[in-house]
């Protein structure tokens, strides 16, 4: 692999930024990389970053699938709120909040409700043919109202140790939330790359009309990705609400849709659809989580991370903008002949 190839690789930018960030953290913050085992659990800043990133990674995975078909899902934050509200509502009504069966019912109900919300988005986009950004805007606006409707406008607090495990528990020394995210990621990678699903999604994103004429059930796939996205958001909502042992319709998943879209874009998936990279998305999500955590540990006020994010977005967009790249590379590297489109 030549240097140029590496420079042009889609994953180069996020990886480089992550490395720079971690280096900064290493220099400015003592004991950043100290990982210790306490009570048989892993502790330390890197573990915290992973834990903090789990909901974002989940949401971003779903978002990647949606974006690959040329769509976008703004409703993920609201779905998180709804899912958490649903689970806490059921658990709060349990006579024994520590019953594993009861918690399982709550979790299943919450995810089922998320699936329904995803189906609704998919219906609007695929069947009614509404622009995705608008279709999901509806649920984004109404979803938080729905969450508060479920909780009757109150914050429901729960005391359930089985439920707590989802967001704050450990298995084999590893945080459960991270394991959940990893499993979902692995399943998604397998489903898209070991089958033809990835190709067909990219085809739908590349051209829905052409895909339909090639015999691809574009609508079915479109509905599928919105359901998948809502499912991911639902799980993320469970992790969030389990972590704080409550359902908060206002703050759960607030602005996470923007972070998730950012993660997808950082990962090199174009917003116009087509080619997608789950590895890139995961890197992007980790990068954002690292940014938030590092800023805190370095002593930068957490608010400043917003400015950071703005800079990251601009830099990334410029880096991925063909025009900007052409300006940079014009002198040094003529693009290979095969890539140049010859206008007739």
């Amino acid at each position: 692999m030549t240097l140029q190839k590496i420079l042009k690789s889609r994953l180069m930018w996020p990886v480089a930024m992550l490395v720079v960030l971690l280096l900064c953290a290493l220099i400015f913050s003592d004991g950043f990389f100290d990982i210790r085992i306490q009570d048989g659990h892993l502790f330390g800043t890197p573990v915290n970053i992973l834990r903090a990133s789990a909901p974002l990674v989940l949401v971003a995975i779903g978002m990647t699938l949606v974006i690959s078909t040329g769509g976008i899902d703004l409703s993920v934050g609201s779905v998180m709120a709804v899912s958490g509200a649903m689970a806490c509502l059921i658990i709060g009504d349990l006579s024994n909040q520590n019953s594993v069966g009861g918690v399982a019912v709550a979790v299943v109900a919450a995810i089922a409700l998320s699936l329904v919300l995803g189906l609704w988005n998919g219906f609007l986009v695929a069947v009614l043919g509404i622009q995705p950004i608008i279709a999901t805007l509806i649920l984004m606006v109404a979803g938080r109202g729905l969450a508060q409707l479920i909780t009757s406008g109150q914050i429901i607090n729960v005391q359930s140790s089985p439920y707590k495990v989802i967001g704050a528990g450990y298995v084999l020394g590893l945080p459960v939330s991270v394991l959940i995210a990893a499993v979902v990621l692995a399943i998604t990678v397998l489903l898209t790359r070991r089958t033809a699903l990835g190709l067909l999604l990219e085809s739908v994103g590349g051209s829905p009309v052409a895909s339909r004429l090639a015999g691809i059930q574009a609508r079915r796939f479109t509905v599928m990705v919105y359901i998948a996205s809502a499912a991911c958001a639902g799980i993320a909502g469970l992790i969030y609400s389990s972590n704080v042992s409550s359902a908060d319709g206002n703050n759960a998943g607030n602005l996470i849709e923007l972070d998730a879209i950012l993660a997808v874009v950082i990962g090199g998936t174009a917003l116009t659809g087509g080619r997608f990279s789950l590895a890139g998305t995961t890197l992007g999500a980790l990068l954002i989580a690292t940014l938030d955590t590092t800023a805190q540990s370095v002593g930068i006020p957490p608010e400043a991370t917003l400015v950071f994010k703005a800079v990251v977005v601009v830099v990334l967009c410029l880096a991925q903008s063909a025009t900007f790249r052409a300006m940079l590379f014009r002198r040094s590297t003529p693009r290979p002949a095969a890539r140049a489109e010859v206008p007739a």
Partner: peptide, 24 residues
């Protein structure tokens, strides 16, 4: 607009219909 999918490779474009028929 209704034929090839520009972003995909020649190989992917060629197998697309057959793959769609087989299912994902």
């Amino acid at each position: 607009t209704e034929g090839v999918i520009g972003e995909l490779t020649v190989r992917e474009n060629i197998i697309l219909a057959l793959q769609a028929a087989r299912g994902w």
